[in-house]
Design a protein around this nucleic acid. Structure first.
Lengths: 137, 137
DNA sequence: TTCACAGTTTAGAATAATTATAAACTGGAA
DNA sequence: TTCCAGTTTATAATTATTCTAAACTGTGAA
């Protein structure tokens, strides 16, 4: 749960002017118990379903990009044509079910890596993500 | 290295009529030493650069889809807007460099997983993929 | 308070990747 | 050789996303 004030601080601290739209989107994303998996389209729906004055789709895209750059959300790997995002920014992994196109978090400690390769020369590891694709039994 | 005959058998065995176009695309993909990472666009370029009679882009897409369904290639996880494919269908992992948008194979034995979670009820694991994103040092 | 203006939002156009359509073509069984 | 389901093709349509440029709005300074 994050109060409006906290949300505004979160925005300010990442150099994002706390506009009506950003506050609304941020509350939708962060003011909840569970982490949240979404696409631009599903967020647009979630934000606008009960509103008379809509937030434009362009703003949804702008805001998602801004929040991603600020590190408040992260983009998830899939091989779907849409971009998926996650409000859980802690290192963790995913199940992906191609049938329902749904992602589920896998808790960090559920996956233990015993060995990982050295990155190529001049590069360092930014992120490591495990995706387990599912199918019907 | 795969000869034309082998390619034709490969196609036949997956119920794909060995047409001129499919044979040509298949040779481009499979008649090489190293595994090959590609997108529809890059394959289109590779196949058509030296040809007077071009294979249409629609056929490239159709064929990639057919080869994927048949299990001759696999789609790779990225968060890029294009679909990436790999001629290496053995279980293995990738480095992804967001700067160059290039993928590199990580050999299977370079990653050792000590613990993985149980799949949700009614589902089994189809595939497990590790993607290591890179950044400049 | 009000002002000024950079930052932000917006509708709609533009682009990029992919999929659909439907007419023409072709591999291969008979 | 013929026939026809399977395939290819050019092009249109669709989907997701980004761009554009005009209108709007937080915010710091007066």
């Amino acid at each position: 749960m994050q109060q409006k004030k906290e949300i505004i601080n979160k925005l300010r601290s990442s150099n994002l002017r706390p506009t009506k739209q950003r506050i609304l989107i941020a509350r939708k994303l962060f003011d909840r118990e569970e982490t949240f998996h979404f696409t631009a389209e599903s967020l647009n729906k979630a934000v606008n379903e009960k509103r008379h004055t809509k937030i434009s789709l362009a703003t949804i895209y702008n805001t998602v990009e801004a929040f991603k750059k600020a590190g408040h959300i992260r983009e998830i790997l899939t091989n779907n044509s849409k971009s998926y995002y996650d409000t859980n920014i802690k290192s963790h992994h995913h199940f992906y079910d191609p049938d329902s196109k749904k992602l589920t978090d896998i808790d960090y400690q559920e996956v233990i890596l015993k060995k990982i390769p050295n990155p190529p020369k001049g590069k360092k590891i930014k992120d490591l993500e495990v995706v387990i694709s599912l199918q019907k039994k």
